[in-house]
Amino acid sequence: MRDHPDSAVLLSSARRTLLEQVLPALEAEAQSGALMVARALSVVIARIETDRRALLAAERGVENEELTALAELLGESAAAAREAHGGASAAVAHLSRRLAAEIRSGAFDPPGARHDLLQRFVFEVTRAKLAESNPKVLQQIETWRKEDE
């Protein structure tokens, strides 16, 4: 077991120091570099949190959410896919490829439950990625989407 602080806390602290102490002392051109570093750190912090939640879920025996959704879309069993591909991430990669091919071939074109399920899936997966990489823009787009509902 590692000693404190854990990775996310350590990085958050590094990011705060960068923004509060280092950035103001930098010249204009170097500031944009420092802001990019801060941005990269915040994404890594968010990813550590996501990975930690996934790990906890896996420890409790909860199936990977993305894998479950993909398997449902493709009419397969998540557990069987995990078994066949030697782990959840390999299974997600494999099923994503199949899903992409089916979307391209028009298999999800007809309006109906399957089409709607796909829409929910791609929105969900994309929102989850954006929640890590740019939560501010995620909120912007979500607000805009709801505006005319």
């Binding site: 990669a93 994503s96 490829r97 899903l99 992409a100 979307i103 391209r104 028009g106 999800f108 074109d109 796909l118 829409q119 899936f121 791609v122 997966v125 994309t126």
Partner: peptide, 10 residues
């Protein structure tokens, strides 16, 4: 694979 981009392209 990028299912969301595939949806947009379709």
């Amino acid at each position: 694979a990028h299912p969301a981009i595939e949806c947009a392209l379709r």
